[in-house]
Design a protein around this nucleic acid. Structure first.
Lengths: 246, 246
DNA sequence: AGACGTTTAATTGTCTGACAAATGAAAATT
DNA sequence: AATTTTCATTTGTCAGACAATTAAACGTCT
């Protein structure tokens, strides 16, 4: 973990890579303490600020945590699912917004992934998950709700559906897809009529999950996906019409 | 983008957050140049090393890129799917290895996600994707292959299957799940007999995708998932038996 | 005037040395 | 023995400096 070619640029990146590799290969174990910044500087034959830049890079990926004081230092961090959620959501959100990903593409991906969870969710759903889904469906039926609040509740509903699968890996993978969709969803204005239909589908999905009817849940998610696409298509058409008129 | 409470610790983290928020909110556009490190230091009323630590954090997330020279500086980076792949894979790999995620859980997630792609892949597969799948299946049938090479080819096969769906968001989400499985897959030693069966399933999957038979592909993936779980279970059982004996 | 080499200014990358703040352990005191 | 004080270690921050890189501005020659 100490090879640095004589390329005197990107030193901090090279050091970060060396330490990252050591962590990923198991050379450094969870909660193990790294040498102090001064020692690392000596080992790598660089200055302390350079070492610090490398450590900050690793900190940004939640690979290490630092603590001040006598027994402090940098420690290999046990990467938690909740830490990874945040990073995944940031990355996914930026990916969608910076690459001109169409609503259709993102929506297709989201519902494809959710439908992958549905059979497992139907099989393993607990009372907790069902209660959350029903509570969110009920909230969505309140009249005074803003579009943003409606979307947020929609995300919460689908999160509960995904979490019901009882597979943290799936929950993690889908967190990004579902949450990153929210900015795109916010462009849709939901009429009372469309809200009614969505809430109806949500309730039906909750019913199917409760009855452990995976095929029904799958079909309903397919309906919901189609309807969401339809709503988005209308928004896009309206905009183009308005632009043609002006 | 310049609020810093008088808390004189974690300054670089606060600055990184401020800039990150500015990027995510659209205040800073893609390819826009940030102020120079010296100007940022002045704006935030901190020293240049502190600013640099903040920039390194953002660089680690591929949110900015830096360039030296007269017209250089830090620029808001257009986050590419390929950049995000790498981060997702490191994060997913560490998540699995550091959280005692069982092979069964990871495997279940992986195949659930792949089965979500299958219908789309069947619908949109190109000659390229089919050729890759068949080439990898053929490679897997070579006798002299090491277990690692077999696994790597397995990953390539499934990557092609996922990419055939023609949805970059899906490809991105699944890259982590599929690649992060590889270290876990490597614990399995594949006998000639089990390889034969896997290759057979792979070929059959390629056939189903070529014929655009989504139901068949789904059923075959289910078979493959079950068989993989069975192989892993055997490895685990053998180990426990060996431990009990010693 | 145009092509080509040179200088120059701006910017990042790195280094040195220093001090402040936090923190736990050891030492001193009650 | 319990509590307080001191102290060493480590991270967090700062100031100033120099090297390396890069493109634009400038000058020179044809």
């Amino acid at each position: 973990m100490k090879i640095d070619p004589k390329n005197p640029a990107d030193l901090s990146a090279q050091i970060a890579k060396a330490i990252r590799d050591a962590i990923m290969s198991g050379d450094l174990l969870v909660d193990e303490r790294l040498p102090s910044e001064a020692e690392l500087a000596e080992q790598f034959e660089v200055s302390r600020p350079t070492v610090r830049e490398a450590l900050k890079r690793l900190g940004a990926q939640s690979l290490i945590r630092t603590q001040r004081g006598a027994t402090g230092g940098a420690f290999v961090n046990r990467l938690k699912f909740e830490d990874a959620y945040g990073q995944q959501i940031t990355t996914s959100t930026l990916l969608l917004s910076m690459n001109d990903v169409s609503f259709a593409t993102a929506c297709e991906a989201r519902y494809a992934l959710e439908r992958a969870c549905a059979p497992l969710s139907a099989q393993r759903r607990t009372a907790d998950h069902l209660a959350t889904m029903r509570a969110e469906a009920h909230r969505q039926s309140q009249p005074g709700l803003t579009d943003e609040a409606f979307c947020a509740s929609d995300v919460a509903f689908h999160r509960a559906l995904v979490d019901a699968a009882g597979n943290p890996v799936l929950s993690y993978q889908l967190a990004g897809a579902v949450e990153a969709m929210q900015p795109l969803m916010n462009m849709i204005t939901f009429s009372a009529r469309s809200r009614e239909r969505i809430v109806g589908l949500h309730s039906a999905i909750a019913d199917a999950i409760e009855l452990q009817d995976a095929a029904k849940a799958d079909a309903l998610l397919d309906d919901l996906a189609r309807y969401t696409q339809e709503l988005a298509q209308n928004v896009i058409s309206d905009r183009e019409a308005a632009r043609a008129q002006s």
